[in-house]
């Protein structure tokens, strides 16, 4: 649930985006710039948040009126081991140190729906987080670490937990719409685990950046799941992509590695927080993905 410290929408003075080389960060920078909001994009090559000197370096860059959006994370494709976990935690520690030295106007942390146990069939913000691997443990630990730091520094703190994000410009190749679109266009096939029965909530990238912009404009605090509220099976996603491709696409079943799991989200808190937000449905989002996969 979010609380808006700024009930009327107002553009932040400046937004510092950490992890600026990533999929979400790039889309966010484009959006904010188009909205006339000054953006300072900080990629890892400029400040490696996992490095020892990162905290002071970031503090030197921050101004009191800045809103900071932390998208930086080593995702599971970069490693699922303890070393990756510790690097990710050091990134949060650096941000915490920077905030202690130079408190800013707001911190928005991009967490993940991974903090919830897969056994919850319907997830809401009131669902208790229950990490099941090091990646989800990392996000929850970062939420706690940054939460404590922002309380100490008196910085408004907003946690966003998006579910599976898809859209043009994705740098990952995770199982789902992005990979399906790429292989459909390049190879004329989509590989599905089992029958693709698993239900998932897929969020279009523009919806996520729109919600981030709203949290910045309202200086929101609290925790919010960024979801569409409508889950679709991977089989249905694959079928919709195949139907939109210019050439025939074969959908190829592959052996399934684990049991079938489903995930649905209650979007009520998002609808209440931002009544003007209109989630993009797959029928609208997939053509835009296929246009620039």
């Amino acid at each position: 649930m979010l609380t808006h410290l700024q009930p009327s929408s107002a553009a932040p003075g400046r937004v510092v985006i950490l992890g600026a080389g990533g999929f979400v960060a790039r889309a966010l920078a484009t959006r904010l710039t188009a909205s006339g909001i000054p953006v300072v994009a900080v990629p890892s090559r400029q400040i490696d948040l996992a490095a020892a000197e990162a905290g002071p370096a970031l503090a030197a860059l921050l101004q009191a009126g800045d809103a900071v959006v932390m998208t930086s994370a080593l995702t599971p494709d970069k490693g699922r081991d303890a070393a990756t976990l510790m690097k990710n935690l050091r990134m949060a520690e650096s941000v915490a140190a920077a905030l202690a030295a130079r408190p800013c106007a707001q911190l928005v942390y991009l967490s993940s729906d991974a903090v919830y146990d897969w056994r919850h069939p319907l997830v809401a913000e009131t669902t208790a987080p229950s990490p099941t691997d090091l990646y989800s443990t990392m996000h929850l630990a970062r939420e706690q670490l940054l939460g404590a730091a922002t309380v100490a520094a008196k910085v408004p703190f907003c946690i966003l937990r998006p579910c599976a994000v898809y859209g043009p410009g994705d740098t990952h190749n995770g199982y789902g719409p992005n990979r399906f679109a790429r292989t459909a266009l390049a190879e004329g096939k989509i590989k599905l685990f089992g029958g693709g029965e698993e239900m998932r909530d897929h969020v279009f990238i523009d919806d996520l950046t729109a919600v981030i912009e709203l949290t910045l404009r309202h200086r929101s605090t609290g925790t919010l799941n960024v979801v569409s509220g409508r889950s679709t099976s991977f089989a249905e996603v694959a079928a919709q992509i195949a139907a939109r491709c210019p050439k025939p696409v074969a959908i190829e079943p592959q052996p399934r590695g684990g049991p079938v799991t489903h995930r649905h989200f209650d979007p009520s808190a998002l609808l209440r927080a931002f009544p003007q937000h209109r989630p993009t449905d797959l029928a609208s989002g997939l053509p835009r993905l296929l246009a620039t996969p």
Partner: peptide, 9 residues
């Protein structure tokens, strides 16, 4: 709380 918001959704 979830069912209260049925009409909203």
């Amino acid at each position: 709380v979830y069912r209260r918001d049925w009409a909203l959704r």
